[in-house]
Write a protein that binds this DNA or RNA. Structure first.
Length: 694
DNA sequence: GTAGGGTTAG
């Protein structure tokens, strides 16, 4: 093993190393071990080179040590903790070595350590120079330390280094990146020598705040625009949602003969992805192929994202598969691509493949995967993700991930776990309140949802339109007419939120269910938008419940205008006729359904058992265990009959639920009849047919 | 012997 270098020369130290009069370049030439560093690609090689240096006594020269530290601190194949260890072994490091370790930390995951080192350096009496400040200021920018940035600015002025071009740009950059545009502008204006770099630093500041008009004005003022300043404009437009401008700027840049590089293309492709410009995106793809840039990871990731966001999943997957060394973003964009097309099964499958790869998932991976868990009721996987986050991503400050977990638990039927996550949050966000309120509403806990809503208001949160969807759907589920009206008016009058279709939907569902059809009518008249299929559908259901044949016909007519081929709506109407004894009309609808060849979309359900998601269609026999499942299903039907349960045959749901239940039982307890009947009795006695908690 | 501005997933 290696020992740390010492400052005393070993007996084997070759004499020529000690000739301090040797110029450094000569030392470099005469020592192949230092030259080896430039080809070092692994920690093993690094250790070998170091031991070589120690063996030859080269570590006794500060020059050799500083070269080694530089490599460890800055190279992507280096090792920053190792650099620090070497650094700490030096009694009196010179300014260059200080600068090197500060630079190394300014690039690391914890740039604030660079500032601590800077303070230490100054306190030992070493005066920083114009190389020190760009590193330190970059650290302030990257760690968001605005006050430290200001203090260091004062230090710069005291030392008279404010006119150094590098220090100057770093000052603009630190203010710009800390959103202090006024100070950034002041520093920029005060200087006489403005080059493309300082212009771009300020432009980036404006762009990051979405102030693209100011950015553009500066860009126009620039005496010479280089590639990076064009890139800054394109990225700025793209990141502030001005995709058209991003694309146009890219075109203009090409017209004047500036060739794009990786950064340009990544930004333009992102703009294409988000604005549906698959034409330009594909053109860039072929351009990239021509230029031999088709193995560039970032460009490939951006292409996968562009294709998948625009529905071309095949092409996206083909490119994704072609990537040799995928990084976390490659996986995230592909999983996200499946998700935004509602291909949840595929998303989860890919996620499981990712877990077998060497790439570690991050918070964004989970933000992409959790909605799929929610959609497929993949509770086991959701729970696994939860514990993974607890173990490995504790430092995640964003509440989005926790909100996503709350949503997943609620949608997978585990409202208790959803509440546990919610109450465990140190900092609750509006979104997390929204998730727990809708979750409670979803589970029929209207009182709980409304109580949470009151707590949220008491804690000073301002509800948004999504909050009220949760609140109103809670009222709607529980038939709380008065509270529904109150909250609707609270939303409109107190919080000045104009109702959207969802809100009207909740109210119309609520009013319709209790038969307040006059109020429904005046609400529909008051809407400044057309009711959608869901609204007419829920109203048609209300007409059936309250046997309002005539109104039902009107509602159905409106529904058919929007959904020509929804057999469910025709069946609902035929049920209304049947209950009114209008058998001719029933027959007429049946004929129509036959003539038009309308078929009901088969009911589909899924369940996750031991980490595998199983999907079933009604009457589907494709599952390998389907014989056992149907046997169990018959048994459950029998037991349900015996317990006096009468299924509502107008709903397919109950069948699906018992189907799921039976599969669950087959998979979990096999053929143990005693256990089965015990479980069933518990399930049935608990809350009717309580399968939601599976 | 070191250095400043632009880069995709959410």
């Amino acid at each position: 093993m290696l020992s740390l270098p010492t400052t005393t020369a070993s007996p084997s130290t070759p004499l020529h190393v000690l000739h301090s009069t040797d110029p450094p370049h000569k030392l470099l030439q005469s020592h192949p071990s230092l030259a080896l560093l430039s080809n070092c690609r692994s920690p093993q090689t690094l250790r070998q080179i170091h031991s070589q240096i120690v063996k030859t006594g080269l570590h006794n020269s500060q020059f050799a040590l500083s070269k080694l530290i530089e490599f460890c601190a800055v190279s992507p194949f280096g090792d920053l903790p190792y650099a620090l260890l070497l650094f700490e072994s030096i009694k009196h490091p010179n300014l260059l070595i200080w600068n090197t370790v500060i630079r190394g930390h300014s690039l690391s995951d914890s740039p604030s350590l660079a500032i601590q080192l800077f303070v230490r350096m100054v306190s030992t009496g070493i005066v920083p120079n114009c190389y020190t400040f760009p590193f330190v200021l970059k650290s302030c920018a990257r760690s968001g330390l605005a006050n430290e940035g200001r203090q260091i600015h004062a230090h710069v002025l005291k030392l008279g280094l404010g006119s150094d071009a590098f220090v100057h740009t770093s000052l603009i950059s630190v203010y710009a990146q800390n959103s202090d545009l006024e100070s950034a502008r002041l520093v920029f204006d005060k200087s006489s020598h403005r080059d493309a770099v300082s212009f771009t630093a300020l432009i980036t500041g404006y762009a990051s705040k979405g102030l693209m008009d100011d950015a553009e004005r500066l860009f126009d003022e620039m005496p010479t625009r280089d590639l990076i300043s064009w890139n800054a404009m394109i990225a700025g437009f793209s990141q502030s949602g001005k995709y058209y401008e991003a694309v146009e700027t890219f075109r203009k840049m090409q017209r004047i003969g500036i060739s794009p590089n990786e950064s340009t293309l990544v930004s333009v492709l992102s703009a294409c992805a988000q604005s549906g410009r698959i034409d330009l995106g594909s053109w860039i793809h072929s351009w990239v192929d021509d230029k031999g840039m088709d193995s560039n990871l970032r460009i490939l990731n951006a292409l996968v994202d562009m294709y998948s966001k625009n529905g071309n999943l095949e092409k996206a997957r083909f490119l994704f598969n072609s990537i040799q060394h995928k990084d976390v973003i490659s996986w995230n964009v592909m999983i996200g691509g499946y998700n935004c097309m509602n291909y949840h099964r595929e998303a989860l499958e890919l996620f499981r493949r990712m877990l077998k790869s060497p790439v570690m998932p991050n918070d964004i991976t989970f933000l992409n995967v959790l909605p799929s868990c929610a959609c497929l009721c993949a509770l086991d996987l959701g729970k696994w993700i939860h514990s993974y986050i607890d173990k490995n991503l504790k430092n995640i400050t964003s509440t989005a991930l926790w909100t996503s977990l709350i949503d997943m638990y609620a949608k997978c039927g585990d409202i208790v776990a959803a509440e546990q996550v919610f109450h465990g949050l140190e900092l609750k966000s509006l979104a997390s309140w929204n998730a727990i309120i809708s979750g409670s509403a979803m589970h029929g806990r209207a009182e709980k949802a409304l109580q949470l809503f009151r707590e949220m208001l008491n804690e000073g949160f301002r509800p948004d339109d999504i909050t009220f969807v949760g609140v109103l759907s809670a009222c709607s589920h529980a038939g709380l007419v008065e509270l529904g009206r109150e909250n609707f008016s609270l939303m409109v009058n107190e919080f000045k939120i104009s109702p959207k279709l969802h809100h009207y939907g909740c109210m119309i569902n609520l009013l319709g269910r209790v038969g307040l059809f006059d109020e429904v009518e005046s609400m529909i008249k008051s809407m400044d938008m057309e009711p959608d299929e869901a609204i007419w559908g829920s109203l048609l259901e209300a007409c059936r419940t309250h046997r309002r044949v005539q109104l039902g016909e009107t509602v159905a007519k409106n529904l058919f205008k929007l959904e020509l081929n929804n057999p469910g709506a025709y069946i609902l109407l035929s049920n209304i006729y049947a209950e009114a004894g209008r058998w001719d009309d029933v027959a007429m609808i049946r004929r129509k359904l036959n003539d038009e060849g309308m078929k009901k979309v088969p009911g589909c359900t899924s369940i996750e058992v031991n980490g595998v998601v199983h999907e079933f269609l009604v009457a589907d026999k494709a599952h390998p265990q389907s014989e056992r499942i149907y046997k169990m299903l018959a048994e459950i039907d029998h037991l349900l009959d015996k317990s006096g349960y009468e299924p509502d045959t107008s709903e397919v749901l109950s069948h699906e639920l018992s189907f799921n239940l039976s599969f669950f039982l087959v998979a979990r307890i096999g053929n143990d009849k005693a256990a089965l009947s015990k479980l069933l009795v518990e399930e049935i006695s608990e809350d009717g047919i309580g399968v939601a908690n599976l």
